[in-house]
Simulated assay, not measured.
Amino acid sequence: MFYLFLDLIKSQTTEDEFKKILKDTDNDITFNRVYFWKTTNLKEYIRISQDEYTKLMQLKESNYTKANTSLQELSIK
């Protein structure tokens, strides 16, 4: 199940994005869980990774929208 999840995310992102998602997931776990003596099971790891994926895609979409808006404003002038 875990490997299928990773394959799915990897197929929907670039290699740099995929690495960023995994790095951000690990950072989240380290900061929020290890420092507070909590453990993270596989299901939680997948949920955190999904959250990181969602954040990245929203940021990507936001940047794409801003870039298009800027280009449209330039073409209007």
Rank of each mutant, 00 (worst) to 15 (best):
Lys23Thr: 11
Thr13Tyr: 13
Asp28Ala: 04
Arg33Met: 12
Ile29Gly: 01
Lys19Ser: 08
Thr25Asp: 00
Gln12Gly: 13
Asp24Arg: 01
Glu52Thr: 02
Lys43Asn: 14
Arg33Gln: 12
Thr14Ser: 06
Asn63Arg: 13
Thr40Val: 15
Arg33Tyr: 14
Thr54Ile: 14
Leu22Pro: 01
Tyr45Trp: 04
Gln50Ser: 03
Glu15Ile: 15
Val34Gly: 10
Ser49Tyr: 01
Asp26Gln: 15
Glu44Tyr: 09
Lys23His: 12
Phe36Pro: 06
Leu59Arg: 09
Thr69Trp: 11
Thr25Phe: 01
Leu42Met: 15
Gln72Asn: 03
Thr40Ile: 15
Asn27Met: 05
Thr69Ile: 03
Leu42Ser: 08
Asp24Glu: 13
Phe36Asp: 10
Lys19Trp: 08
Asp24Ser: 03
Glu17Val: 12
Thr69Lys: 08
Ala67Met: 04
Thr14Arg: 03
Asp16Gln: 12
Thr13Asn: 12
Glu44Cys: 05
Tyr53Met: 02
Thr69Arg: 10
Asp24Met: 01
Lys66Trp: 06
Lys19Gly: 05
Lys23Asn: 12
Glu15Gln: 14
Thr39Gly: 05
Thr39Arg: 05
Ile21Ser: 04
Gln12Ile: 15
Leu22Asp: 11
Leu59Met: 10
Ala67Ile: 06
Arg47Cys: 00
Asp26Phe: 13
Met57Trp: 11
Asn63Lys: 10
Glu52Lys: 07
Asn32Gln: 02
Leu42Ala: 12
Lys60Pro: 03
Thr30Lys: 15
Lys19Asp: 07
Tyr64Cys: 11
Asn32Asp: 08
Leu56Ser: 01
Gln12Pro: 11
Lys43Ser: 08
Ile21His: 05
Lys23Tyr: 08
Glu17Lys: 07
Ile21Pro: 05
Ile48Arg: 01
Lys55Thr: 13
Tyr35Gln: 14
Ala67His: 05
Tyr45Lys: 00
Phe36Glu: 14
Ile48Gly: 06
Thr14Val: 08
Leu42Lys: 14
Arg47Ile: 00
Val34Gln: 05
Ser49His: 03
Lys66His: 09
Ser62Phe: 06
Phe31Gly: 02
Gln58Gly: 07
Gln58Pro: 05
Thr25Asn: 02
Thr54Leu: 14
Asn68Cys: 11
Ala67Cys: 04
Ser70Arg: 15
Ile46Glu: 01
Phe31Trp: 07
Ile29Ala: 02
Glu17Gln: 15
Asn41Glu: 07
Asp24Lys: 00
Tyr35Ala: 14
Gln72Met: 05
Ser70Phe: 15
Arg33Pro: 02
Thr40Cys: 05
Lys20Ser: 07
Lys55His: 11
Glu15Phe: 10
Trp37Ile: 11
Ser11Trp: 10
Ser49Arg: 01
